[in-house]
Design a protein around this nucleic acid. Structure first.
Lengths: 339, 339
DNA sequence: TTGAAAGCGCTAACAC
DNA sequence: GTGTTAGCGCTTTCAA
């Protein structure tokens, strides 16, 4: 038994499809009697309207596409949950795409989502040279976490956090806690987050009058692939603390520290950009720059729905959400380490 | 400028829409010359085929619906990533739905996804009295992690792990490590996972000849809502170790342990069902029952695609993936605790 | 208050 | 190798 369609319902209720459509959409006036008849027919046939056909006709899918780096990263997980929760309210669905930071994959995702006729897009771009020109023409799009390339400046709504000052505060905290040789494992400079957090690190050193030391600076990526190895190099360069620029890198750092049998915070102090729930519960707990991750998703989706539903045509805006340094045990220096 | 459609392309290339369709689908034979003409037209118009219209016509959306409890739970996150990775290979998309373990939400998700005409479904059910009869008629569906209600026995493909023996092994390990009063915080009995892991706990006690003690058994849920409080109660009942039945509960346990200033594994030993990456890196590292989470998603999606693409009509099967106990530091008893 | 009919963008007989 | 045309399931003018 194939699924019933609108004409099956019409036939059973002995009305036209137009009338059925009217009761489905609660549009125009339908007499009480017919309405009931139709509803009964719908009930008995267990009819479900095809969003596909409807979408084709009225040109909306009630679906929005979300492009992120990797759902395994708790940062994106929480963001997606924020997006999801808003979308449920509007009876929208989201379809997810992981780029793994590969511009090529991002392009493919974008193609797929556009082919799927999504009503809007939320993008945490890879920062590669991706081409968003086809979205510039008013297609509802919100960028999150990372800004699109400068050439799109002012063209898209953007929701992100203050990476520079958040990072600077974190590093200054390390310095003020007595750490002297502060290493950093930066994410890729391709993304604005990677770049800005590194800038924050440099800013803090400058603010505190500490010279930069190339041996304390390692360039990794936000997937955390090489973090293990880079941490070892940092430790060999006698760093006494590390500013970890995202939570994926953090895992590699931990792995290296554990393998080398070193102790946090005495042998090496730690501050992480992005706070993950478990960091507060472990021994020692981790000092972190907390981002309002869920809120980012929530805000982005709200802005997006405003564009879609209210056809809001104001100039795109950039919303910067605050971060906050949460001081815990991993940055509490107790003994001066012997150099 | 609205998006170009297939007839725009046809017009520009001076061919019929059929021909355009043919080159799009690489079906039938099209002369090299026309093919090139069409491709050029596609290029210049930046044409993207509408999956919506196509889907309506051929009755497929290349979309599959995934119903899970909560994407914030790393278990589901990894599972979803497994599903995603397979779906990418087939050029399928997934749309996600969180139930938060509420049967009502699950029902709503199911309705939405079916209205969206998804080609298939992967479901980690809430275990409430949800009605899957409309799926029984051969709609491609795979259940994961949890079995559907017994009345659907043998009706659906299912991919899950051996919860009973995995749990039993975990608890026996605790006993064999010298722990005597082993508490448990169980998930809801609604889901087969909750029920079976609890069964595994009881089985282990029986195997080792230890009597059950009601004061050491707490009933929580897999959201981990009350885990904090329940842990306190367990500790007050003088338990010397806890079998934690999922990773969300784990966070509550940690919170309580930290607040009470107790030490793992000396004051309280710990084994968690489900291994999360960070558990191996922290001090002390956590003993865990590792589930092949990514593999579950991968397998489920592979089975599903086989049903969809190959119209595989064999009897539904249940695939049980192995779990393994990973012994780490949280269950390594050092001093006998003073009672 | 209701219905007939066109059409959203595409695919697939069928004809040439 | 290529084109004409019907129709997927729905919404929406227009007319009654």
């Amino acid at each position: 038994m194939a699924n019933a369609n609108i004409s099956d319902v019409a036939a059973l209720a002995k009305v036209s499809v137009t009338t059925v459509s009217r009761v489905l959409n609660e549009s125009a006036s339908v007499s009480h009697k017919t309405r009931v008849k139709v509803q009964e027919a719908i009930e008995t046939l267990n009819y479900k309207r095809s969003d596909l056909a409807r979408g084709l006709r009225i040109n909306e899918t009630k679906t929005i596409g979300v492009i992120i780096s990797n759902i395994l990263n708790p940062f994106f997980t929480r963001m997606v949950r924020g997006i999801e929760d808003v979308s449920q309210n509007y009876n929208y669905n989201i379809v997810l795409c992981n780029t793994d930071e590969q511009p090529e994959k991002e392009r493919k995702c974008l193609d797929m989502l556009l082919s799927k006729n999504v009503d809007g897009l939320i993008i945490a771009g890879t920062g590669g040279m991706n081409d968003y020109t086809r979205l510039e023409n008013g297609f509802p799009t919100v960028f999150v976490d990372r800004r699109p390339d400068d050439k799109y400046k002012g063209r898209f709504d953007t929701v992100l956090v203050d990476n520079i000052n958040g990072s600077a505060e974190a590093v200054e905290h390390l310095i003020d806690s007595g750490y002297k040789r502060i290493g950093v494992i930066a994410g890729s400079n391709e993304s604005t987050t990677g770049y800005e957090r590194f800038l924050g690190y440099k800013k803090a050193l400058k603010n505190r009058g500490i010279p930069e030391d190339e041996s304390l600076i390692k360039y990794g990526n936000f997937l955390g692939n090489m973090a293990d190895q880079l941490t070892k190099e940092l430790l060999e360069a006698n760093c006494d603390s590390i500013f970890v620029t995202n939570n994926m890198i953090m895992l590699g750092v931990l792995e290296a520290v554990k393998k080398l049998g070193m102790r946090i915070p005495d042998d090496v102090g730690l501050v992480v950009f992005d706070d993950v729930e478990w960091m507060q519960y472990i021994q020692p707990s981790f000092t972190a720059v907390a981002q309002p991750t869920y809120q980012i998703g929530l805000t982005a989706m709200t802005v997006l729905m405003d564009r879609i539903l209210n056809k809001n045509e104001e100039a795109p805006k950039e919303i910067v959400l605050p971060v906050s340094l949460i001081q815990r045990e991993s940055s509490r220096k107790q003994n001066q380490s012997i150099v």
